[in-house]
Simulated scan of single mutants.
Amino acid sequence: MSHEAVKWAHNLAPIPMDSNGKPNASCAAVLVGLAIHAGPDGKGAFPSTRTLVRYTRRCERTVRTALDRLEADQIIRKGDPAIVAAHIKRGDRRPQVWDLAMERVRTDLDAEDLKALEAMFPGVTARVEAAKAAAGEAPVDNADAQAVDNQEGGAQLSHPVASTGCSRRGDEVQPVQLRGAAAAPELSTEPSNEPPPPARAGIDAGTPVDNQGAGGADLGSHQQATATPVELFLAKLGPDWPLSKGQLRRLVPVVTRAIAAGWDPTVLAEYVRANTTGVRSPYAVLTSRLGDLPDPPRRSRRTYPDERTVAEATTSAVCIHGDPRPRACALCRRGIALEETA
């Protein structure tokens, strides 16, 4: 066990955020599980998925989704496969090797937190300030702040910085300015004069896809006739699976392999888009589901209109092959058409 990697995972590692603004607990637990098996530099962790399931007490799909989210946020990255090959001879039993991005640090630590962590991680304050500067979050310096006056009206007025564009209000509470970029204008009072953004193009510049954010309404008859199988899949996903243009490009090879394996684009979309409950990262969930597909469903053998299934043959009163006992006709039970016996 590497104590350095575990301490980093517990204290300094940035964790993907949920829609409620809180760090994802499953990602945090999976990251700690990887750190337990990593070296002092955070490299060479290859616990199996079953091991991570036992550590985190999450289901296998949740663990795989957490790994996808951590990789998408560049908190972990794929490591050298030769490391696990030296320990496990069978290629079909080798898990994925992961390296932890221990150079990454959280940017939500305050001065009190940094003071407590400085003894454990020397120089962590400088690392966090550098990360904030790279993310566009300038450190707060209150050394030159002016005093706050209490007006006779009863409300406190702050002293706004001139560059932020805020104005002094009498007898009202001054809105707090966010750190970093200036606050966006209110839509009701300052409507934007910029033209609307152009429609998002599809995967290929020559053939746009009308998928309304990787999904949306079904394609029209003309579009269906000219669309590729990948475009049909993306159009069938629906509005519950919004994807960026970069995520769409990364999904194309995975979808292409599934279609080449025998999956119908429409059936594939219906399979992977099911059960949207609790999905916070559509791209990670779709990647996980597409990477763990079962064999494609078998297509029906019925190629003629007069072919019948076993259920139809055992309930029909007429045999197309002329058998006086229609429910006992062996050809009907096998689904053989009349043309095949001619």
Rank of each mutant, 00 (worst) to 15 (best):
A5V: 06
W8D: 09
N11E: 09
D18E: 15
G21R: 06
A25P: 07
H37I: 00
P40F: 01
P40N: 06
K43N: 02
G44C: 03
P47N: 11
Y55N: 10
E60M: 10
T62W: 00
R64T: 03
Q74T: 00
I75R: 10
G79F: 03
A85N: 10
A85W: 03
D108E: 11
D108R: 06
D108L: 06
E118M: 00
V128H: 01
N142Q: 12
D144W: 05
Q151V: 06
S158L: 13
V161F: 05
D171Q: 13
V173I: 14
L178K: 09
G180S: 03
A183E: 15
S192P: 03
T207I: 07
G220F: 01
S221L: 15
A227E: 03
T228N: 08
V230C: 02
L234K: 05
L237T: 11
G238Q: 09
D240C: 05
P242V: 09
S244F: 02
S244W: 02
G246Q: 10
T256H: 08
V267G: 11
A269L: 11
R273P: 02
T276M: 05
G278S: 07
T287C: 09
D295N: 12
P296Q: 14
R301W: 06
R302F: 15
T309N: 12
A317M: 03
D323Y: 11
P324W: 04
A328R: 13
A337Q: 08
E340V: 03
